[in-house]
């Protein structure tokens, strides 16, 4: 806890230290206070807020579509051996294509619009989610399933009451990984599929005008947002886990 609080402070101190010596040109690494100044001015113009909102909307839509699809697909090939045999090889082959590689094709199909950006993010969120859901379902101890069948659980009830709860830790891992992937690909999508707004735009604007401060504001913003969302997901995972353990005690 202490470490996580003092770390940003230490980082900024370190940054201040190397920039204030004057050995590092401000074009390479500007002073922290200048970055903060740009940050505040962007923030007060509400431009930063707009970039953030648009980017968040993109990442969330892509992420949600991706994990919904990934969950369904993972469940399907997890529950059915035949389904696995039919779909898994194609899935694994497709997985070998780096997500970024899809961008040119998707742009050709859908133009430079919002849809391809969200689609690329959805694809990147899909893979980890599908893979972890599948693994989770397959690793459900067969004893539980036997037990459920002793009590006459039917297929749907078995899935809802036994398989999904037992696979939950792995599914949550999938969600976390998918979220991380979504953030990485968000920035790539915003940089590679041109857009007038978004944190990616903010960063590349900064680069085009050699405004180092703005580039750093963008990077830090994106890192912070990603961090906050990861924290939220981890909190959620803990709540779910705790709910489970209470459930077990009862």
């Amino acid at each position: 806890m202490l470490v996580s609080i003092t770390l940003p402070v230490r980082l900024i101190l370190f940054w201040q230290l190397i920039t204030s010596t004057g050995y590092v040109s401000p074009h390479i690494l500007p002073l922290p206070k200048n970055v903060i100044k740009i940050f505040l001015s962007l923030f007060s113009e509400e431009r930063l807020m707009l970039h953030i909102v648009i980017s968040l909307r993109r990442v969330m839509s892509g992420f949600l579509i991706g994990i919904a699809a990934g969950f369904s697909f993972g469940l399907l090939i997890g529950l059915s051996r035949t389904g696995e045999k039919i779909f898994a090889p194609f899935f694994h082959a497709l997985r070998q294509v780096p997500m970024i590689g899809w961008i040119p094709l998707i742009v050709m199909w859908f133009g430079m619009s919002e849809l391809p950006r969200i689609l690329v993010i959805a694809i990147s969120a899909f893979y980890p989610m599908a893979l972890n859901t599948f693994t989770g379902v397959r690793n459900v101890p067969s004893e539980y399933i036997e037990l459920a069948s002793v009590y006459g659980y039917k297929r749907l009830k078995l899935i809802r009451r036994v398989i999904i709860p037992a696979a939950l830790p792995s599914i949550i891992t999938g969600i976390t990984l998918s979220l991380g992937m979504s953030w990485v690909i968000l920035v790539a999508a915003e940089l590679l599929i041109e857009t007038p707004v978004g944190i990616g735009r903010l960063i590349s604007n900064g680069r085009e005008t050699c405004n180092m401060e703005q580039v750093l504001v963008g990077i830090i913003t994106v890192a912070l947002l990603g961090f906050i969302m990861t924290m939220m997901i981890e909190k959620l995972a803990k709540v779910v886990e705790r709910g489970r353990s209470i459930h077990q005690e009862l």
Binding site: V3, S4, L7, P8, L11, H27, I28, W183, V184, I185, L186, V187, A188, L191, I199, G200, I203, S204, G206, R207, C210, M212, V215, L216, G218, I219, V222, A223, L224, G226, F227, T230
Partner: peptide, 26 residues
């Protein structure tokens, strides 16, 4: 580990594609 570990974990939070423009500037 105690000194560098948290720093690296913090750096990992940055979506690495965001660094591309920065790297080009550098």
């Amino acid at each position: 580990d105690r000194f560098v570990g948290p720093l690296i974990k913090a750096c990992k939070q940055v979506p690495q594609f965001a660094l591309m423009p920065l790297i080009i500037l550098w």
